[in-house]
């Protein structure tokens, strides 16, 4: 099964599990699937985030919170090499996935993204039918032939199946924002990554759609490890097991850098933060 196979340098012919099987995780709970070690991210000469060290625990939800511009998205995108296409973007330090450095020379970023998927802030379904949105990822992952079962499974897991099962051939762009976002989640889980990165997945949604996605995130931890960026502290408190609080610091040269201030279990971070800045932020006394 792919979860035990840490080879990121080659493309397996079939990278997706057979339908019906799940990635077992309960037994390995609290093992860290990813580990950031002194990770800094640069845009050109600008060091956007400085020296981040934190683990990502398996089958747990890790939340990243902090004020706007402190580098949450930047760190998140560094976790599956989504910064690669940005000209000038660069990462130093180690981003380890099952102990393997994602930025090592022989690592194929395409393999990385197949194992570590991403859901974006703004729902971004392809201008294709609902069915083809989910099928696209399956096809590029080498699944051939009838994809109906895979598509249904993914849409069901994303709690969208009942709403769309009669209009799979309709354009995904005709769905509501919340449905589009669940479609994007379905599209991501269809290719069965181990880790799903979510960048403010609910920020464009109303409270009901948000609640649906939060329930979904909870469900997904059976099979997946989740990292979620959110501006909503209640959301972080509700859905996550661990929370990382970032803030922006101004250095001697008057440059702002994102810094990880505190990482701990969510309950502890919100009730008994170790750092004064965390406390100020979560109690709303932030600058």
């Amino acid at each position: 099964m792919a979860s035990n196979d840490t080879n990121l340098t080659t493309r397996p012919s079939v990278a997706v599990h057979a339908p019906g099987t799940t990635v077992s995780g309960a037994d390995s709970a609290n093992a860290s699937v990813m580990q950031l070690r002194d990770v800094s991210v640069y845009y050109g000469s600008y060091e956007a985030v400085r020296g981040t060290t934190m683990p990502i625990q398996q089958n747990q939800v890790t939340a990243m919170i902090g004020p706007s511009g402190c580098g949450k998205s930047t760190v998140l995108r560094a976790l599956n090499r989504m910064n690669d296409p940005i000209p000038g973007a660069r990462v130093s330090g180690d981003v380890l996935f099952h102990g393997q450095d994602l930025y090592a020379k022989d690592v194929d970023p395409i393999q990385v993204r197949r194992r570590i998927g991403m859901v974006f802030q703004k729902p971004n379904p392809f201008p294709k039918s609902i069915y083809d949105n989910v099928a696209y990822g399956l096809r590029i992952n080498g699944i051939k032939g009838r994809l109906d079962d895979h598509v249904e499974e993914a849409l069901t897991k994303a709690a969208l199946w009942d709403e769309v099962k009669d209009k799979l051939r309709k354009s995904a762009l005709a769905l509501s924002g919340g449905q589009q976002q669940r479609l994007c989640i379905a599209r991501t889980i269809a290719v069965k990554p181990e880790v799903i990165l979510m960048d403010e997945p609910c920020s464009a949604l109303d409270p009901i759609a948000t609640a649906k996605i939060e329930d979904l995130i909870f469900e997904l931890t059976n099979d997946y490890t989740i990292v979620i960026v959110t501006h909503n502290m209640q959301q972080a408190a509700r859905v996550s097991h661990y929370t990382a609080f970032f803030t922006a610091e101004v250095d001697e040269a008057q440059e702002r850098h994102g810094r990880l201030v505190e990482f701990s279990q969510t309950g502890k971070l919100f009730t008994n933060p170790a750092d004064k800045r965390t406390e100020d932020y979560i109690t709303g006394r932030f600058g």
Partner: peptide, 23 residues
């Protein structure tokens, strides 16, 4: 955003072009 969506699914550049750019 469309190109990112394709890349995040593990698309190669060509698969990204076929899936996101051409449609």
């Amino acid at each position: 955003a469309d190109k990112d969506a394709a890349l995040a699914l593990g698309a190669t550049r060509w698969e990204m072009i076929r899936g996101a750019v051409f449609p």
